[in-house]
C-alpha cells in the first residue's frame, strides 16, 4: 500500500491507497471524511466531484491519487463553513442558488477557479465557464446570479484587505 503526501485544505495530509489509480474522490470522501465532493458520474462529465488542485478546478472522479503527490487540494469544506462561508459560498446562500444541492459543490469550486482567472466575467463568460457543470434541478439562473454576486463580494473582500 503506497502513501501519497499533499496539502489538503491548508494542512498536510497523507493518503494510503492500495491502487495508485484510485480516484482522488474516493480518498477524500472515505479516508478523509470530506463529503463536499460528490460522486456524479465517474466520467468527468458532470462536475459534481470538483475540487481545486493548485487552485484549478479538476474532476476528482478521474484524478488518480498518485497524481496529487506534493500538490495542494482544496475541497468545499476548505473554503468556509455555514457560520463563516467564503464569499462564493455566501453568494450562493444569499441567492438561494440550490435546490437539491448535489451539484452545488462543483458549481462553487468551478466558480472559484473561474474568478481566479477572470475577476469580473460577463454573464456569457460565466455560462461558458460553467458549461461543463450539470444541474438537473434547473437552478441555473440563480447560479448565474450567485456567480455575478460572488465576483462583487470577492472584489470587495480583496479591496477591504488592501
Amino acid at each position: 500500500m503506497a502513501s501519497y503526501r499533499f496539502q489538503l485544505n491548508g494542512k498536510a495530509a497523507v493518503a494510503d491507497s492500495w491502487d495508485p489509480a484510485q480516484p482522488l474522490l474516493y480518498v477524500l470522501r472515505n479516508a478523509m471524511g470530506l463529503h463536499g465532493p460528490k460522486f456524479g458520474c465517474g466520467l468527468a462529465q458532470c462536475g459534481a466531484c470538483t475540487v481545486l488542485v493548485d487552485g484549478k478546478a479538476v474532476r476528482s472522479c478521474v484524478t488518480p491519487v498518485n497524481s496529487i503527490e506534493g500538490k495542494t487540494v482544496t475541497t468545499l469544506e476548505g473554503l468556509g463553513s455555514p457560520e463563516t462561508p467564503d464569499p462564493v459560498q455566501a453568494a450562493f446562500i444569499a441567492e438561494q442558488a440550490a435546490q437539491c444541492g448535489y451539484c452545488t459543490n462543483g458549481m462553487i469550486l468551478q466558480t472559484k477557479s473561474l474568478l481566479a482567472q477572470n475577476a469580473f466575467p460577463s454573464i456569457d463568460q460565466v455560462k461558458q465557464g460553467l458549461a461543463g457543470n450539470l444541474c438537473r434541478c434547473g437552478t441555473h439562473t440563480r447560479i448565474l446570479s450567485a456567480v455575478m454576486l460572488a465576483a462583487r463580494l470577492q472584489a470587495s473582500v480583496k479591496g477591504g484587505a488592501r
Binding site: R29, L34, H35, F39, P82, G101
Partner: peptide
C-alpha cells in the same frame, strides 16, 4: 435552512 450546509459541504446526503 439547508442551503448554508449544502454550500459548505456540511449537509449529510444519503450518499454521505
Amino acid at each position: 435552512p439547508d442551503v448554508p450546509a449544502k454550500a459548505t459541504g456540511a449537509h449529510t446526503y444519503v450518499q454521505d
